[in-house]
Each structure stands twice: as C-alpha cells, then as structure tokens.
Design a binder for these strands. Structure first.
Lengths: 218, 218
DNA sequence: AAATTAAACATTGTCGACAATTAGACAATG
DNA sequence: CATTGTCTAATTGTCGACAATGTTTAATTT
C-alpha cells in the first residue's frame, strides 16, 4: 500500500494554498472563487487550479455549481457535532487500534516534538498555534496507521470540522483544561503499554475537546 | 443548499461509466487504468477522463500514483467491517433522523417503487438486481435528507463497501432473511409514525445485512 | 555473463485556446 | 406594468498539444 502520497504535485500544492486562504480567514464561508483569477494569482494554468478545486470539493471545503461558480462550503454546527465528530472518533480510535503496535521510534520522536511545541505555545499563550499542534497530533495518530483509505476519509472529515471551528470564537475557558489533557494523552501514547488505555484516553480527549455537554446524550 | 447535484456533467458521466466497469467486474481490484485509452474508448478528451478519475480517486474507488498509473483500489475486509460499515450506520441513521419529518409523497412513491421492483427481483431470483435495489433504498434515505455534506460522505463510504462486497461470494443463504427484512423496513418507512422505530429498524437492518456475527462486539 | 548506462517508449502532468452555459442588462411585446 | 426575448460579458467546460517523468529495452562496459 502506497504510504507516500503525492503531496508534492502541483494540484496538491495549489489545493494547499487555497486551504490556507480558507483557514486563515482570507476566504470566508460562502465566498466565491474564480478559477482564472486564482490561476493568475498563483501563476499556474487554470487546468491545475481546476483539479485543485475538484480536490477541495471532494474534501468538502468547496462546493461548485456547473457553469456558475465555486464557493467555500457552509457547514452547520449540527452536522459537525452530531455527524462529523462521532465519525472522527470512529476513525481515530480505529487507526490507533490498528497502528499502535507498529509505532516506531520516529513516531514517538514526533510525538515528543509536538509536546515540546505545545508547551511553548502555552508559554506564549498562542492559542492558534496550539490548535494547529492538536491537529498535528491527531494527524500523526492516523498517518501512523498507514492505512490509505482511513487517512483519506479522516482528512475529508477533519477539514470540514476545522472549517466549522474557524468561525466559532474559540472559548479560551476550556484552554486550561486542554493543557493537562494533552500531557496525559501524549504520555500514554509514548510510554503506555496498554492499547486499550490509549484508545480510551483518545476517545475521552476527542469528546471533551469537541462536544459541548449538551450533545452528550448518545 | 443546492439539492440538485451536477450529475449530468461530462466528468460525472465518465465517472459513472468507469464505476460501472468496476462494479460489473470488467475492471478488477488492482487493475490498471490508462487515461488515453479510456478517453479513446469513451470518445472524450483525456482532460475529462482525468477529472473523472480524480473524482473516483477521492471517492475511494481508484488510487493513482503520480507519473505512474491509476488502479482500482484494494480494500481489506477488516476496514470494511470495522470502519466503513459502522460509519455508514452513523450516516444513514443521522440522515433519517434529520430528514424523516420532511419526507413528501414523492419520497414515499419512490419507496413503493423500490419495494415493487424488489418483489419482482425476488420472483426472478435475480440477486444482483436485488442488491442494486437495496443500495437504491439506502441512497433514497440519505438523499432525502438533502444535506449535501452528508450525501457526499455517504457516497464515498458506500462505494468502498460495495467494491469490497463485489469480490465476496454473496451467500444466498442470507438472501431469504433479507426479503422479510426489507418488507418490514420499507413498511415502517412509508407508514410508520415513529421516527425512533424507523431509525432502530434501519440500524438493525444495516447490522444484519452487513456484519457477520463475529464482529458484533462493540 | 552480469552490471551499468543510454536511448526509446508509454503514461501522466501542465498549458493555452476555444466552446458551452449562465446571469444580467436592456429592448420588444402583450 | 409585467413578461418575454435577445444581446453581451463573465465564467466554467472541453479539447489537443507539448513537457516531465517513469519504465522498458537495448547497447555498452567490466
């Protein structure tokens, strides 16, 4: 199974740049994108931009109507909380179950690095960087499973979730709580011997960092 | 929210045709697809085929390596049973919860039609048509929710599942059981007043038709 | 003969040009 | 006055050609 994706091809790079525009708030939900304009801005052909757009459309970040336009997707909070996050939970715990036993030193080194940077982000009270690192952490867990199908589905889900949380004023009240949470999780992932404990900690972590108490009925 | 997808654009048509080749067994798992060949066969340009391939790649049916080739995806039974089907369960029950109350007469007519055709398929002992109708039934449930994001994720999941079951010798032993199952499910969907009952019946149905007893631990 | 290099081929990646479709402005019609 | 039809501009859809890359084959060297 091809572990190495084609992250360096032009269309992926373009998709990445458009993603950046979206996640940094340059492009807001519902805002229009024109292929030719984007092609000119980025100095590439429209064909490549089209492929990038198709990519992002299938990833759920953009939605385009034929002969009309392409716009940044609008996602409802309900969908995020009731559908996307539960699915994310499924995927990540599955990836951890399947991959944990094969984790090498490199994975643990990356974990260590993320923890290091998280502590830094905390010292500088840099919330956005911290959130970025949180995503990296979860990405690492999924990537380490080396299951291509899992990785892809996860990406499409997480992008949608991320897009939604962009337009939520992140409450820094929960920030304090997250700090300890991450320390515990990473410690278990690096040193823990029990897969079950790791999975359960991860599950708890996702639920607590994402789902308001109101929705915890299921 | 744009309920009408762009199912008629060329790339979707091409994607559909390639899908057909896959689901009818013309193209087997791991088999290679060449863009130019496909373009020639279908009488369209390579660009359009490329876009269709990208579509199917993101839907999980194809996997392509840059400058090398594109092949039909290989999916493990483990992924299907432990990841994809549980996610499918999530999605369909969610779609039913959200959409059920807004179902109009047209939806119920379509349900009736599917039931009709299922009975026919049974009389002729046409298993493959029956399976096709089963997919249509579930598709209808999801489509009726009119939630674009949900529909997309569902499609990508179901295509992968379908691809997998293609290469499983469908046991006709369970066939008998399915017949009654479907009658009950459709009856509740058409006449049932209780959403909860409908959801629970659907859940039961998916579990029973897809997951071998061995995997029912969760 | 085995290993290495180089040329030829097949396939995918990128591009600019042209066609098809849509939306909006504006006139013709009842 | 509302409606319908027609033009125009903007945008997306489709195409064939050429560039970049990977694979195979054949020649060359040891």
């Amino acid at each position: 199974m091809s572990a190495s994706f084609s992250k360096n091809s032009l269309k992926y790079q373009i998709a990445q740049q458009i993603k950046k525009l979206i996640f940094e708030g340059e492009l807001q939900q519902g805002e229009k994108i024109t292929e030719s304009q984007m092609a000119q801005d980025l100095g590439v052909s429209r064909t490549s931009v089209r492929e990038a757009i198709l990519l992002l459309e299938l990833e759920g970040l953009l939605i385009s109507e034929p002969y009309k336009d392409t716009r940044v997707t609008t996602i409802s909070q309900e969908e995020v909380l009731e559908l996307l996050i539960p699915m994310r939970l499924h995927i990540e715990t599955y990836a951890l179950k399947k991959g944990f036993s094969t984790w090498g030193d490199d994975t643990k080194e990356q974990l260590e690095k993320i923890r290091e940077n998280m502590r830094k982000a905390i010292r500088y009270e840099d919330l956005s960087t911290f959130i970025e690192l949180d995503i990296q952490l979860h990405e690492l867990i999924v990537m380490s499973s080396q299951l291509d199908n899992v990785i892809r589905i996860w990406e499409s889900i997480v992008h949608r979730i991320r897009l939604h949380f962009l337009y939520q004023n992140s409450k820094s009240s929960t920030f304090e709580k997250w700090l300890n949470d991450h320390e515990v999780l990473i410690d278990i992932l690096i040193n823990g011997k029990s897969l079950e404990l790791a999975v359960e900690t991860l599950r708890q972590h996702i639920v607590e960092t994402n789902i308001p108490d109101v929705y915890l009925l299921d």
